[in-house]
Write a protein that binds this DNA or RNA. Structure first.
Lengths: 116, 116
DNA sequence: CGGTATCCATAGCGATACTG
DNA sequence: CAGTATCGCTATGGATACCG
């Protein structure tokens, strides 16, 4: 696997959190502590099987998630946040805040961080 | 022009700040107060003429930049941050911070927010 | 249940050339 | 000097089918 080359530190962070469903995944795991593949699939609904797999792989490779496989039949896989993953949550929160304050809710399909 | 529809407030913010050169543009204008098209082109170097134009248009349409055209020959156009644009700077700063702390500098082509 | 492989549609950006 | 138009490349993600 090649080392990624980023334009700058902003670009680096962005490439790591960027991905259609990644924030949903991170928040859901953060709130529940630990989730299985099927849980995430059901929670997000609109994500395809293959895409969810790839987003999870990328989050794992970037060191935000840890993946635990139970050697059972049928398979069981659990995802949880790493320390680095947890350190990202405040950043995501700020991004969400700004979005809520600057974009009309009518343009949002879903609201992640309701706060009145 | 259609209203954008975003997955959520995070996605909304991301779509607005996302774009290969947008942060460079925003920071440069923020630090200098005001920049012309040619200044930005020269500062960023690697950006193509057309792409710079489009990124500026999008930033303008999203209300982060204001564009002032001087009716002269040759043309003169100045870009500056709007109030909303300025409100975004702390968010960008936090994103940069996280990137600096979590990605080796050897993987960065350029560093935006040097801070020791 | 969770993962992989193949194929395809779409969006973002770049190269280039042309305009007022 | 600043902007527009056309074309092409590449990356992301979705549909589908198959595997352990």
């Amino acid at each position: 696997m090649e080392k990624a080359l980023y334009l700058n530190e902003f670009d680096a962070t962005l490439q790591i959190i960027q991905g259609k469903w990644k924030v949903l995944i991170l928040y859901e795991i953060h709130e529940s502590g630990c989730r299985r593949f099927g849980d995430l699939k059901q929670y997000i609904q609109d994500v395809s099987h293959k895409t969810l797999t790839r987003q999870l792989r990328e989050l794992e490779q970037d060191g935000l998630l840890s993946r635990k496989v139970y050697p059972e039949v049928p398979p069981k896989v659990e995802y949880s946040l790493t320390e680095r993953g947890r350190s990202l949550i405040p950043v995501l929160d700020l991004i969400c805040d700004w979005g809520l304050q600057n974009v009309p809710k009518t343009q949002l399909q879903r609201v992640l961080c309701e706060e009145d």
